[in-house]
Design a protein around this nucleic acid. Structure first.
Lengths: 118, 118
DNA sequence: CAAACATATGAACAAATGCTCATATATAAA
DNA sequence: TTTATATATGAGCATTTGTTCATATGTTTG
């Protein structure tokens, strides 16, 4: 078997461009956080929860019924949404009501829809 | 062990709201596609690739060096980005150059950054 | 206080995901 | 045409992720 040379072992095709890119790239932390944020939107259960909350605040029980899913599954996903500051909650007696944390959520989803609908 | 009643076995807390939500929810296909789109943004390697392409088109080799990752790893991620129409490619000799497919990519990432930066 | 109900959460498990390694394909150069 | 280089891709593997099940926590009611 022949040992192939790896592409770009040395400075290769466009070292100048590579350097420019490296200078402009946001720091690792920001990139990681950004990916984490989009990861939260990247699940259809969570997207459905967010869409449901477009209308109005809802308690866990309502969400569970609207999306036809286990209360436990919904609660787990709500925790992720809460941790990432996409929803907020308030308790009223036995129920806990969830609502969108801010307008960014709507804007981000709207941009995503734009792309989907071409 | 006591058998606990499940929450919402019957129409529960706000059946009216639940119905309204059900009427307004986009169809399953759209929700799935939307989640798929965000899932693509939800990985820091792919986010870094997209950021790198903010500057200029780059060949696989450049990306591989800029992000300090295997050519194979980059190619695999580029395939995902291509499949989801977030980047486009053109061949020039041995190199294949990648660039952003359209402005939506920039807009979506910008909205994400807004949320990160509070 | 005890019982009932709404929600939260840890553990376990199956499915999805991202990387590596080996290799295939495409183009250029010798 | 043979060889070298750039990119693409399938298989394997380790990690992550979403759901379920059991149970804990918090609140109201009797």
């Amino acid at each position: 078997m022949v040992k192939h040379a790896q592409c770009c072992d040395e400075k290769c095709v466009h070292p100048d461009l590579v350097n420019r890119v490296l200078n402009e790239l946001p720091d690792e932390d920001a990139l990681y956080d950004l990916a984490e944020l989009f990861k939260v939107f990247g699940d259809s259960t969570r997207i459905r929860i967010l869409f449901a909350l477009f209308e109005t605040e809802l308690c866990v029980c309502d969400l569970s019924e609207a999306l036809d899913m286990t209360q436990s599954a919904i609660s787990h996903q709500l925790q992720i949404l809460r941790t990432n500051k996409l929803v907020k909650s308030r308790r009223d007696g036995k129920q806990v009501y969830y609502s969108l944390a801010d307008e960014h959520v709507v804007t981000i989803i709207a941009q995503g829809l734009n792309h989907i609908l071409e």
